[in-house]
Design a protein around this nucleic acid. Structure first.
Lengths: 107, 107
DNA sequence: TTTTTATATTGACATTTATCTATATGATGA
DNA sequence: TCATCATATAGATAAATGTCAATATAAAAA
């Protein structure tokens, strides 16, 4: 899978305000689904849906502990996403060809 | 506006593979719309739509230069997004209360 | 085993998204 | 001014998204 597809999937997981808050909550350590649910005005199936997306993106791990689900961050994945954005933010300008070239390219 | 709403808007802008590629292209410096368009199999109105979203997210600047639109990165915004993810990826575990507490909370 | 608790899945639905075609606007050049 | 080029907007549409209620599944407790 092309990087920009994998990465866009990660950013998609972070593109929902609820999911972003969940990721921030998990920064403090592993949490049970019920604790996460208590912080939002959403139903249990909706949380389950969001967690599935977060896990599918690779940003979050889930493990069953008896009757409960425990969720935690994949910090490596977050660090990679951070590094990608940082690399772009630090990128150097490549000398360009002067003008735009739209007109010329068509002539 | 709450941070996680503003930030989720930024990540939403990056959550589309085409837009993510555009941001990566802009890492090399300012580009004219026509040059960006040439790299994708999308129509001009579709590109216009994506650029509007990127600008709305704060990640990209647009300026008109005569008949052309020149787009460039807001590197500060990218650095901020990167820093947010990095902060989360480096976060330390907060001592928890032991067990999950679902059962107890309900009793 | 039966009941209760925690989570997942299904199906429905309204909203948002990405895309196109057609057209409008804005700027250049003849 | 008129024709052309670059971009933006409008309207349509198919697909994806986020949400819920209802139900299924899995584990624990009685």
């Amino acid at each position: 899978m092309k990087d920009y597809i994998k990465n866009s999937k990660m950013f998609k997981a972070l593109s929902d305000a609820t999911r972003l808050q969940i990721v921030e909550m998990l920064a403090g350590g592993e949490l049970c689904a019920c604790k996460i649910l208590a912080h939002f005005n959403i139903t249990q199936p909706t949380l389950s849906y969001h967690m599935k997306i977060l896990i599918g993106s690779g940003l979050v791990y889930g493990r069953r502990e008896g009757a409960w689900m425990q969720y935690s961050l994949n910090k490596e994945a977050l660090a990679e996403a951070s590094a990608l954005l940082r690399k772009i933010s630090l990128s150097k300008k490549v000398p360009d060809t002067g003008t735009c070239g739209c007109r010329e390219a068509r002539a």
